[in-house]
Simulated assay, not measured.
Amino acid sequence: MESTASQAAATTTDWGEKAWKLLASVRRESPLVQCITNYVSMDLMANTLLAAGASPAMLHSIDEIPDFTPCAHSLCVNIGTLSPSWLPAMKAAAALSSKLGKPWVLDPVAVGASSFRMKACLELVDFKPTVIRGNASEIIALSRASASTDSAKGVDSIHDSLDAIEAAKLLAQTSGSIVAVSGATDIVTDGKQVVGAHNGVAMMQTITATGCSVSALITAFVAVDKLHALDAAISALSIFGVAGELGMKMAKGPASLRMHLIDSLYGLDEAAVLSHVKITSLS
């Protein structure tokens, strides 16, 4: 029993060191992260990236894709306020990123809300995102895209993240992407291995665009280590959760938590990361 506890502690320490190394790399390299996202999330996503040390570019005009996307280190596509006028730019940027071997992340916001969203996401998945990050309901809906009984209709998740493990594994296997599911326990899988991050506070769910922002943070992390996308994704989720935990100690409600979360992410040091990151194997 002591041996098992020691192994668990060692594993946690290893993950903490990986997470810190990735955050330090983001701060040192300041990757340029192109975000094609929604009006609701632009502000918090940009500030999350800046607080982590990355350089955000909220650029969505299709006319700029050929010139700008090759210069970016990674791409985040978020369909939160999807419209027909934006979809061609999303597809063009995703296609170009894949062609150039640049990592990119798909956030399928409310993918089950309409056939338009589902079709758009399936088309985007064809461009081989490095990571697909959503809540449990979004991942289940996308994984079961061929079924007609999907019940997820909005942005909020009606499932627990652990309910989506098998759907996430299936989606990872069929898409070739790393799949991340946000929830009380954040999970990440490559279709075989499943790891969980046990960080964060419930109040983060009451702040608009925290999910979108962690997708952006994942995009920054994969920019500095695209060969280990699973490690990058789970580390970003845990780091964002740690910032939420530290911010909550100073917050009085959602509005002040939003502010203190950004401040805490900006101020994270090695000791805080090593002592707070909680990542475990779930498979």
Score class of each variant (00 low, 15 high):
Asn78Gln: 01
Asn78His: 01
Ile79Tyr: 04
Gly80Phe: 06
Thr81Pro: 13
Leu82Ser: 06
Leu82Met: 14
Leu82Trp: 02
Leu82Ile: 14
Leu82Tyr: 01
Ser83Trp: 05
Ser83Glu: 13
Ser83Arg: 10
Ser85His: 06
Ser85Trp: 01
Ser85Met: 15
Ser85Pro: 07
Trp86Gly: 12
Trp86Pro: 03
Pro88Glu: 01
Met90Tyr: 00
Met90His: 02
Met90Val: 12
Lys91Asp: 09
Lys91Arg: 11
Lys91Val: 13
Lys91Tyr: 07
Ala93Phe: 03
Ala94Arg: 00
Ala94Cys: 10
Ala95Asp: 11
Leu96Ala: 12
Leu96Asn: 10
Ser97Asp: 04
Ser97Cys: 09
Ser98Asp: 13
Ser98Gln: 13
Lys99Ser: 11
Lys99Gln: 12
Gly101Ser: 09
Lys102Cys: 06
Pro103Ala: 06
Trp104Ser: 12
Val105Ser: 09
Leu106Val: 03
Leu106His: 04
Asp107Lys: 03
Asp107Gly: 05
Asp107Ala: 10
Pro108Leu: 00
Pro108Trp: 00
Ala110His: 11
Ser114Trp: 13
Ser115Ala: 13
Ser115Gly: 07
Phe116Ala: 14
Phe116Arg: 15
Met118Ala: 13
Met118Asn: 12
Lys119Leu: 14
Lys119Ala: 14
Ala120Asp: 13
Ala120Lys: 15
Ala120His: 14
Ala120Gln: 15
Cys121Val: 15
Cys121Ala: 10
Cys121Gln: 00
Cys121Tyr: 07
Cys121Leu: 01
Leu122His: 09
Leu122Arg: 12
Leu122Met: 10
Leu122Ala: 04
Glu123His: 04
Leu124Thr: 05
Leu124Trp: 08
Val125Lys: 03
Phe127Val: 03
Lys128Trp: 00
Pro129Gln: 09
Val131His: 10
Val131Phe: 11
Val131Tyr: 14
Ile132Phe: 10
Arg133Pro: 05
Arg133Ser: 10
Arg133Glu: 03
Arg133Val: 08
Gly134Val: 00
Gly134Asn: 07
Asn135Gln: 04
Asn135Ala: 05
Ala136Cys: 11
Ala136His: 03
Ser137Leu: 05
Ser137Asn: 09
Glu138Asn: 02
Glu138Pro: 01
Ile139Thr: 06
Ile139Tyr: 02
Ile140Asp: 04
Ile140Arg: 02
Ala141Pro: 06
Ala141His: 00
Ala141Asn: 01
Ala141Gly: 03
Ser143Leu: 00
Ser143Ile: 00
Ser143Asn: 07
Ser143Asp: 10
Ser143Phe: 04
Arg144Pro: 00
Ala145Ile: 06
Ala145Leu: 07
Ser146Tyr: 07
Ala147Cys: 12
Ala147Pro: 03
Ala147Glu: 10
Ser148Asp: 13
Ser148Gly: 14
Thr149Met: 01
Thr149Ala: 05
Asp150Gly: 15
Ser151Arg: 11
Ser151Ala: 09
Ala152Cys: 12
Ala152Asn: 14
Lys153Asn: 08
Lys153Met: 09
Asp156Cys: 12
Ser157Asn: 11
Ser157Phe: 01
Ile158Trp: 00
Ile158Met: 05
His159Gln: 13
Asp160Ala: 15
Asp160Trp: 05
Asp160Arg: 13
Asp160Pro: 00
Asp160Gly: 13
